[in-house]
């Protein structure tokens, strides 16, 4: 079968041992910090921190290689688009213009623009490792319990868990249905004209939706028969109490947030300026 992609693998590492709730809070605050700051020093420090975390987690490269390449590709597109749409954004932000070379018309390459885009790149490189790490090291079944612990209603928390449970089944349904449709001569590949292709895709979607609805009916009957939704609260087989490491992780992320904010805003601008004004 196909290789598993971006799914949780049971490993022994300090990162894996953290509870899902702490990892979620950590990831959320981390992302907020990275979004706010354009301070290169802060971003660089966070990026390095992220790499160290990755090393500690013992996650294997092949578990996320495909997704990583995909992200890198889109990041490249994004960088090109940023430049094409506003080649002078850096100049506007840093207030100076040091041209490196000129391409054509309004397109020239300034060190300011390069530095600005380097910062954007760095932001992505700060957030992405943490996002990957969160997905790869969080046990989905413990995650639902964690969500419930941080105040999310257990019905919603369980809905997340049940979605994770049934995604592979629905994928399998999709493969089977599309196999049967294609074996009937219903072509969904590029060989078919766009109009016909859209029509043919509906030949797969309709049965998929109906089968999924049937699944939902069976599951909800099975859940009701086993007393789901009866009480105001429920316990969790896989719940884990917060340990020392969890509190330490929370302390670290609060410190990172505070430190980064201090560094970013102490001179009154979100941007860290390395360019001298040359009036």
């Amino acid at each position: 079968m196909k290789a598993k992609m971006l799914t949780y693998t049971r490993l022994e590492s300090p990162i894996h041992r953290l509870t899902g709730a702490v990892k979620l809070i950590f990831f959320a605050l981390w992302s907020v910090t990275a979004m706010i700051t354009y301070d290169t020093r802060s971003l660089l420090a966070m990026f390095l921190f992220g790499l160290v975390m990755f090393k500690i987690s013992k996650v294997k490269f092949r578990d996320y290689s495909f997704v990583l390449y995909l992200i890198l590709f889109f990041m490249l597109l994004n960088q090109l688009a940023v430049y094409l749409f506003s080649p002078a954004e850096g100049v506007k932000i840093y207030g100076t213009s040091h041209e490196w070379f000129h391409i054509a018309g309004r397109y020239n390459v300034t060190w300011e623009q390069l530095f600005y885009q380097f910062n954007i790149l760095l932001k992505y490189f700060t957030v992405i490792p943490m996002a990957l790490l969160f997905l790869l090291t969080t046990d989905p079944s413990e995650f639902a319990a964690s969500l419930n612990r941080v105040g999310v209603s257990y019905r919603i928390a369980y809905a997340v868990s049940i979605a994770m449970r049934y995604i592979p089944d629905i994928q399998r349904d999709f493969h089977n249905i599309s196999f049967a449709a294609q074996a009937r001569g219903i072509d969904m590949s590029k060989k078919e004209k766009l109009g016909a292709r859209i029509k043919n895709v509906s030949a797969v979607l309709m049965p998929l939706i109906l089968t999924s609805l049937q699944r939902i009916e069976t599951v909800s009957a099975a859940m009701e028969l086993r007393a789901f939704g009866h009480g105001r609260t429920r316990t969790w087989y896989n719940a884990r109490p917060f340990g020392k490491a969890d509190f330490a992780a929370l302390a670290i992320i609060v410190a990172i947030l505070a430190g980064s904010m201090l560094l970013t805003f102490h001179d009154g601008s979100r941007f860290y300026n390395i360019f001298e004004r040359t009036e």
């Binding site: 079944s141 449970r165 089944d169 069976t218 099975a222 859940m223 789901f228 429920r234």
Partner: peptide, 29 residues
């Protein structure tokens, strides 16, 4: 026990599926 063994499996693991009813009844971990 319903007829579709796959459809009524609500847990992400065997242990959780067996525990499901106890969880709903607030039995301590």
């Amino acid at each position: 026990v319903l007829q579709d063994p796959d459809g009524q499996f609500v847990g992400l693991t065997v242990a959780e599926d067996i525990a499901f009813k106890l969880e709903n009844k607030n039995v301590p971990q």
